[in-house]
Design a protein around this nucleic acid. Structure first.
Lengths: 363, 363
DNA sequence: TTGAAAGCGCTAACAA
DNA sequence: TTGTTAGCGCTTTCAA
């Protein structure tokens, strides 16, 4: 259909939105007065303010956000991209961590008056260059992510993880990877494990890099063998195979089998547990298990799996805080926040009171 | 925090954006000419058009989307909200189905020039009333969802599932639930199952209602006992318990144990499989298993689990198509599309080649 | 073929 | 205390 909607006329199909001027006319006031009344600004007599508000309400007035945005010079729009796995557009949101980070970011931002625009991973810069975003959140970018470069070049503030530290216009919130790994390893050590093994995807993500560094430091500090098995790529399949490799025992370490498994990859806890069992090992009897995961299935396995939560909601909250400060108050100081993780200890990483070898009566 | 200017305050740091008028001045042309050159409209000499474009490129000109939107009278913004479980904001995105639907919606819409604004489930209408959304996609609303009512009352086009059928301004895309259930039941029947049981959450979602109706019809048509076990609520815990109940055998049906299990709930396939095994049953030997799920973990279990995919990408595509038609061409005809599902048959629902009782040589 | 001017709906100086 | 007016940056008649 031809959208014969010039202006002034009364086009039959389209909906005639109530504008500020309509309310003003109806109330016998000026646009300015009504605007001030509705926004709580200016100095108006309570009577007039009430009248303006009442009329607006009665007429079902809804301010035109676009006009406001133009006037304000800020779109109140924040872009959101997940940087990793740019070639597989939907993988990222499927991870419980990103799902929760995304939802929490949207909720927190909206509460502060900013709408979050979902940018598909792998979308071309040209697709969102014309959106007039006030800022963009790049969740978990790869090292030297080109997306980040483009954004900064376009002078759009970027919120990301520590990988952007020190760059103008780049702000960050990051997981305390070091603390996380330390906490998890301390825990399994306290439960008696002496040969923990780390499974981590072969990713250039800042988080995974930090995890490996922290692991190395911890092993050195505790005189533990530094055992790491890398999954070729993220995703359940490779991680499961890495778990199998990890538990096969390390020939370089006298073939001794690891007694604790720390999986730092968004793998499904029940799948990890099944993999361990298929090797004929008991959890937690033979091996203690801790997964870095937000996956709720961890609570429903037998035994429930201990998890290390990266606390996506806290990260989203901290990020929104920083971005709003930058956008509203013009903070230009590079700044960042480190969010601590949370270890949820469940049966999979608690050494049974009576280990198998002591429960056998002595011959 | 006392922020005297709710909306529209001038931001402190003046970002010197290049405007159209700057390009015009630089090129020695008028705004009109440059605008036409950049948009490919009007009748301009190739030389002038090229000059305008070159200058714009050189100066790094980026059109102000907000101004465009104001001028166009359309914000080119589509809201996206997941209706179910409004009280648990992040649960929905965690489901692989919604995750993929969300990502695909964002990608498809953006490709057509519309940005998708993520609206947290459970957010108040007041929070997004001021966003000037052109339309809102309500994914999987509950029956008579109040969100839908509010939207339609505000005369904002709504895209949802069939539950909105026939209402002015409401358009839909829906899963072919009937076909899906039929396909799955036909499949297990072909594999020899005669006593299938359906596990479905106790939800008022259109999809689940349809599933039950289709199941009833199928059972009647095939003279099969109509066995349904309802999970108290979505989420893995309740669904797992429902699976246990389902396989305990139905006293009302001579206590015969079901020989096929169709789980129509976004439960984790490995968890479902574990639950079946804990009952001492073999899959697919004792019971065939099919889960309605987009969960990729289904491929990684032992045996892999057959799944019925709702094809979220196809749904997103169809939805965007309809919405764009409405928004751009003013189609006001109520319209909808039914998207077929896809059954991915894996080992969990294929009767082993030599069932136990036929493998015995005849005496 | 190009340019001047009029708004889109809103907010905020500045008058009255 | 309230109203008038001038734009925010862009697209689009309409005139030159």
């Amino acid at each position: 259909m031809t959208d014969a909607t010039p202006h002034g006329g009364q086009p039959s199909p389209p909906l005639p939105r109530v504008r500020l001027v309509d309310v003003a006319r109806e109330a016998g006031l000026s646009k300015t007065t009504v605007s001030a009344a509705l926004n709580g600004t200016g100095r108006l007599s309570p009577a007039v303010r009430e009248k303006a508000r009442e009329t607006a309400r009665r007429m079902g007035y809804r301010p035109n956000a676009t006009a406001r945005r133009l006037r304000a010079g800020r779109a109140r729009l924040i872009g959101y991209v997940v940087g990793e796995f740019a070639d597989v557009p939907w993988t990222s949101l499927e991870s419980p961590y990103f799902a929760r980070l995304t939802a929490a970011t949207a909720a927190t931002s909206l509460r502060r008056g900013y709408a979050v625009v979902l940018l598909p991973a792998g979308s071309l810069q040209s697709e969102w260059a014309d959106l007039s975003l006030d800022a963009v959140i790049v969740a978990d970018p790869v090292a030297d992510d080109p997306v980040v470069e483009d954004l900064l070049a376009a002078r759009i503030p970027v919120l990301s993880d520590r990988s952007v530290e020190g760059r103008s216009g780049a702000y960050w919130v990051d997981v305390d990877a070091g603390g996380a790994v330390g906490e998890a390893l301390d825990h399994v050590r306290a439960q008696g494990a002496r040969r923990p093994v780390l499974v981590v995807p072969d990713s250039t993500t800042r988080f995974h890099t930090e995890v490996c560094a922290a692991h190395r430091a911890w092993c050195a500090a505790h005189g533990a063998p530094e055992r790491v098995v890398r999954a070729g790529s993220p995703g359940n399949g490779p991680v499961i195979r890495a778990v199998e490799t990890a538990l096969a025992g390390d020939p370089a370490a006298d073939g001794a089998r690891p007694d604790a498994l720390l999986v730092v990859a968004e793998a499904s806890p029940p799948l990890v547990l099944d993999a361990v069992r298929r090797l004929g090992l008991d959890v937690p009897g033979d091996v203690l298990l801790v997964c870095v995961s937000e996956d709720v299935t961890a609570e429903h396995t037998e035994p429930p799996v201990s998890t290390l939560s990266l606390r996506p909601e806290a990260i989203a909250e901290a990020g929104a805080e920083i971005l709003v400060a930058v956008l509203e108050h013009g903070d230009r100081e590079p700044s960042g926040v480190l969010v601590p993780t949370r270890l949820d200890v469940r049966a999979s990483s608690v050494r049974p009171a009576q280990p198998a070898y002591t429960s056998r009566p002595p011959t």
